[in-house]
Write a protein that binds this DNA or RNA. Structure first.
Lengths: 326, 326
DNA sequence: ATGAAAGCGCTAACAC
DNA sequence: GTGTTAGCGCTTTCAT
């Protein structure tokens, strides 16, 4: 493997000249040409480690995701990746399978690798996260869960929950089943649910059931096959699109029609909600925009500019064919 | 940011001793304890650049994917990520949006970053790929397209195509529409199609139509809304699960039922084919296993052991409810 | 068991 | 416009 020294020797110049050539400093046309030739001949490739060691920064951005089998994850990843590429950053993706230990480890691993910044798609934030992140000299952007100790993007979950509950009521549904997730996930498990229930509970003549299900599609589907016949709701209000898909599939499997017999809605706005028929009513979260916003924010932070610590993003209701008036 | 020098100074030892401590060399218990304490106090984190610069290797594996919005990509990523993690490698993921230029650039970028190996989820392989890869001193594993100049995993596409065509015939279908993709993608566009057509064309009394569609869901869906009424097939044999989903949705939108009026099948075995009702008949590709196999293979290569240059993986037919006898 | 010293490949002052 | 030089943070002989 050729190094800058080899190039300098072969070209008969000092390595600083080669370095200058590489970094756009002033080099005479003649020197330029000979260096170019030598580089071509040797197939020279600069060593980023040495570079980064010297300039003390890298073009790496680390992103920590809770799982690799979630549509929400993919949509955000895609948007961040696209935006980062525009700014010549390289994305380092790492998946923790929702394991807190691994999340902590990865934050450390990233800081060893001297990433310029870390993006954390959070599920649960602990004290250890806080200690670690506060001790770090690398900016961390937490997306999806409220976080007071570093930069933070969150969605207005309560308002999202309210929108959907109001939608259900406006369609005259009075037998509503809410399928939620564990409260460890504060955003989805607590806030989103709170928004929904705030509205529903304000309405007295309502038959309301609340049930906790798993994030996993298959587990939820199997459970619903047994559970749904015992409650017979007219509207199933699901905490995520994934759950909505499971509810949809289970409803059909039980011989009912959507939306004729049962209305179903989700949250998220994953593109997959449009693939099924009927398309599923959902609340669209601005995943596409998160990428651009995040990168913009990070650039400001890295330039040492003052930025808002917390930004709140607003989801919007998207009514499709899976919910209808009764 | 504390460096090894700071630790050494604070602990009153030489930095080589600290280094030895870090790398499991022999250090006395007393020294060990004081070093540990100092590290804890300062929150010391070793610099991987300096480390890698010195030992001339990294624990990074780069993977190049053609797009981030493909279920096939997700399934493979997930499997490779899981397996790599077991072996303490860090995965660097980069998306090229099917742009050949970007693919070349990224191979270079990875080699600058001194990744230990590169995995390429290929669509089209050009001469420039060959030149670049052959000049590289980093092992490259190409997955999904035949490739003679480096390590290579491919699926037996012809056999997959044949399986599905035979399935269609066995259900007595005689009006078959094949929805394929561009032949630039040799594996899917050419070989898979060849397998299908080899079988179908051997059958004389067949009404066979072949049509090229886009990998993109929305484009294909819109096109099919216009095209399907002009051909009225009893079986739509789609080159990918994604296309099958578009065909499925278009068929329903046109007021027909699946599988009562039209049978539909795909290729891939994406988990999403089970989310819709009826579940879609498909050929399952061993994406889950690819990860383990790939990592195993890379380990052997990196250890300098001899390995097969090419491995052929066998897909299997999975009959679901979207296809039926007529 | 520990320390001194050399050097990995690169950049950036500084002098010419 | 170009060369000399010092070092980035680490590992690794080689002495002791």
């Amino acid at each position: 493997m050729a190094t800058i020294n080899d190039i300098a020797r072969l070209a008969g110049v000092a390595k600083s000249t080669v370095s200058r050539y590489l970094n756009g400093g002033s080099v005479s046309q003649a020197t330029k040409e000979i260096i170019e030739k030598v580089m071509k001949d040797t197939g020279y490739i600069p060593n980023t480690f040495a570079q980064s060691l010297k300039v003390k920064k890298s073009n790496l951005i680390g992103i920590i995701i809770p799982r690799l089998n979630s549509y929400a994850t993919y949509e955000i990843l895609e948007s961040i990746d696209r935006s980062l590429k525009k700014h010549h950053y390289q994305l380092l993706i790492t998946n923790t399978d929702q394991n807190i230990e691994r999340e902590i480890e990865q934050i450390l691993a990233f800081s060893k690798q001297k990433v310029a910044a870390i993006i954390l798609l959070a599920t649960t934030l602990t004290n250890r996260h806080q200690q670690l992140i506060e001790a770090l000299d690398i900016p961390v952007l937490v997306i999806g869960q409220r976080c007071d100790f570093t930069y933070n993007f969150i969605y207005n979950e309560i308002s999202a929950g309210k929108m959907m509950a109001e939608h259900a009521l406006s369609l005259n549904h009075r037998q509503i089943l809410y399928l939620g997730v564990n409260e460890h996930d504060v955003a989805v498990g607590k806030l989103r649910k709170q928004g929904v229930l705030d509205v529903l509970k304000a309405n007295s003549q309502l038959m309301l059931k609340v049930k906790e299900v798993d994030f996993n599609y298959e587990i939820t589907y199997q459970m619903l096959l047994e559970y749904l016949p015992t409650v017979s709701p007219s509207y199933i209000l699901c905490a995520t699109d994934n759950i909505a898909l499971a509810a949809y599939k289970a409803t059909l499997a039980l011989g009912k029609r959507v939306p004729d017999d049962v209305s179903i809605s989700g949250f998220g706005g994953y593109s997959i909600t449009n693939l099924v028929t009927p398309a599923i009513t959902t609340v669209r979260y601005p995943y596409k925009e998160v990428g651009d916003l995040a990168v913009l924010q990070l650039q400001h932070i890295l330039n040492g500019e003052e930025v808002e610590r917390q930004s709140i993003l607003i989801p919007v209701l998207e009514v499709k064919q899976s919910t209808r008036k009764i």
